[in-house]
Nucleic acid binder design. Structure first.
Length: 299
DNA sequence: CCCGGTCAAGCGATG
DNA sequence: CATCGCTTGACCGGG
């Protein structure tokens, strides 16, 4: 988020990432020319670099790459092979590396490698290929340090999940991480997947509260930490909004604007640099600054 | 300008 | 059984 002065002199914070989207319905009506689509994509990746500059200036060392930089690219694959796009992604990748930043991406909820429908798996792999293509273009190593992070998907389908993972191309599989979710795959479930596939577990302390496998947060994070080898484990942090603590599952899973609570084990591990944390708060960098003031957490 | 309705996809929870 | 929510909201068409 960056400050912007309004006409009346007051300051409001706006999203530094000005991302444009395109709609399939409009596309199918022939409303989008190739030029329009390409210019939207270029707008997004130039905007992305501006946003990255803000993050770097803030001293934040981790950034999530949007899954929507190239709307409708599934239908216009040829347009992706473009000199300007390649150059800009390379430039962004170089900037990430020269500032020792950790880069992650979180493909959408429609990526389900454990689906009972083979076509869903096929489409999921296409999505993952696209994310891996972006990381390749940025020149980021094939390692979970630069992770493509997804959820386990359909509950109780570990066999399908493992066999889908085994079939993934290297440039996806070597970057893949699995995150525990609130209802289908907890940390113990994902540890079983790890034993068969070597896919590291991205521990989410908020999700863990909903689906804890009878493990304390500390033990769950410890178990997830065993799956990372020499890499610093990535973890996620978010909170239920205090006004929602007595609400329904739906209300409680929603992420708050700012940080209200950091589990002590996660705070300590962050400050001694044995884990990294992705802050999932709606106010983004503003939430991080406020947390530094309020919770003795360090960048 | 501003507003309300709408927007590809999978899945699980909710009322 | 329709709707909502999934880190982050944007686009479109009509007033």
């Amino acid at each position: 988020m960056v400050p912007k002065k309004k006409r009346d002199g007051s300051i409001e914070y706006i999203n530094a990432m000005d991302e444009k989207s395109l709609q399939l319905g409009q596309y199918n009506l022939g409303k989008y020319s190739k030029e329009k689509i390409l210019s939207t994509w270029l707008h997004n990746i130039f905007s992305f670099e501006k946003c990255l500059d803000v993050i770097i200036k803030d001293g934040i060392r981790s950034m999530r790459v949007s899954s929507n930089l190239f709307p409708l690219c599934d239908f216009e694959q040829d347009l992706l092979e473009n000199e300007q796009i390649s150059k800009q992604l390379k430039k962004i990748g170089d900037k990430f590396k020269s500032h020792q930043m950790r880069v992650t991406t979180h493909p959408s909820q429609f990526v389900v490698l454990s689906s009972l429908n083979p076509n869903v798996i096929k489409n999921s792999i296409e999505q993952l290929k696209h994310h891996a293509w972006i990381f390749d273009k940025m020149g980021l190593d094939e390692s979970p340090y630069y992770s493509i992070n997804i959820h386990g998907g359909v509950r109780d389908q570990k066999k399908i999940l493992c066999s889908s993972i085994d079939k993934l191309p290297d440039n996806i599989r070597k970057r893949l991480t699995l995150e525990n979710d609130e209802s289908s795959y907890n940390v113990k479930d994902l540890f079983e997947i790890y034993e068969s596939t070597s896919i590291p577990i991205c521990f989410d302390s908020h999700h863990h509260a909903f689906n804890d496998a009878s493990l304390s947060g500390e033990d769950a994070m410890g178990l997830a930490g065993l799956t990372w080898g020499t890499y610093t484990p990535m973890t996620h942090l978010s909170n239920t909004d205090p006004s929602m603590v007595n609400g329904s599952f739906k209300d409680k899973r929603k992420h708050s604007d700012f940080v209200h609570y950091i589990p002590e084990y996660q705070r300590v591990a962050n400050n001694n640099k044995s884990i990294d944390i992705d802050f999932e708060f709606k106010q983004k960098n503003l939430a991080i600054f406020e947390a530094i003031k309020n919770f003795e957490i360090t960048l």
